[in-house]
Simulated assay, not measured.
Amino acid sequence: MTARTNTPDVRNPDGSLTIRMKRACNGCGQTLGDVDDRDVDEHGNLTDVRGECPACRPLVELEAAGCKTWRLTVRSIGRIDDAVDQDGIYAKGYWEDVDGKLTVTGLRIGSGPDRIVAKFGDWVVRHPKGQWSVHKAPEPVS
């Protein structure tokens, strides 16, 4: 796949700004570059561009290898907790002090020293043989 161009914004002599529409990864939201013909399929739907994203490409590879992935959010935590529980593995909200108040900030999977913790925004991965892992969310680009 050819690399995307990334056309910079241009300030015009009259003070206006000319921009080129950018495509963001549909997995993590990072900007990948300019929108082009590969972004829409023959039915007019946006294509999956996670394979172009350095942060999400490993998830696409894991899914191709038979893994199930979930992005951990406030809305998805219950669904992921249920999936982990169905494997007979202990899962519970992960609590931290946020501005002086105990707050759920993620999900703890397993118990004892081998437990893993996924924070909101991370990806939780169930591998075909039943083990669980976490793919950390990318650091925000400034």
Results as ranks from 00 to 15, higher is better:
T2S: 08
T2N: 09
A3W: 06
R4Y: 13
N6A: 13
T7K: 01
P8E: 14
P8C: 13
D9W: 03
D9T: 15
V10Y: 13
V10A: 14
N12Q: 15
P13A: 10
P13H: 01
D14W: 05
D14G: 07
D14A: 09
S16D: 15
L17D: 11
I19R: 08
R20N: 14
A24K: 08
C25R: 07
C25P: 07
C28W: 01
G29S: 09
T31F: 10
L32C: 10
L32N: 05
G33V: 03
D34G: 08
V35M: 13
D36L: 05
D39F: 05
D39E: 07
V40L: 08
D41R: 00
D41C: 04
E42L: 11
E42Y: 09
H43I: 04
H43G: 10
G44T: 09
G44Y: 01
N45L: 15
L46T: 07
T47K: 01
T47F: 04
D48T: 10
D48G: 14
V49G: 07
V49P: 01
R50P: 11
E52N: 11
E52S: 10
C53W: 03
P54R: 02
A55M: 01
C56A: 11
R57Y: 06
R57S: 08
R57D: 11
P58N: 04
P58T: 09
L59I: 10
L59G: 11
V60C: 05
E63A: 10
A64S: 10
G66Q: 02
G66S: 03
T69C: 06
W70P: 03
R71A: 13
T73W: 00
V74Y: 10
R75P: 01
S76W: 01
I80E: 03
I80Y: 01
D81G: 02
D81L: 03
D81H: 12
D81S: 06
D82T: 15
D82L: 09
A83H: 00
V84K: 00
Q86A: 13
D87W: 02
D87G: 02
D87K: 03
G88H: 03
G88E: 05
I89H: 00
Y90F: 07
Y90C: 02
A91I: 05
A91P: 09
K92D: 15
G93Y: 06
Y94N: 11
Y94I: 02
E96T: 02
D97W: 08
D97E: 13
D97V: 05
D97M: 07
D99F: 08
G100S: 02
K101D: 15
K101A: 14
K101N: 13
L102G: 06
L102W: 05
T103G: 05
V104F: 00
T105W: 00
G106V: 10
L107K: 03
R108L: 12
G112C: 02
P113G: 03
D114E: 12
D114T: 08
D114P: 11
I116R: 06
G121C: 03
V125Q: 03
K129L: 13
G130L: 04
Q131P: 09
Q131C: 09
W132S: 03
S133A: 15
S133T: 14
V134Q: 02
P140I: 04
V141L: 08
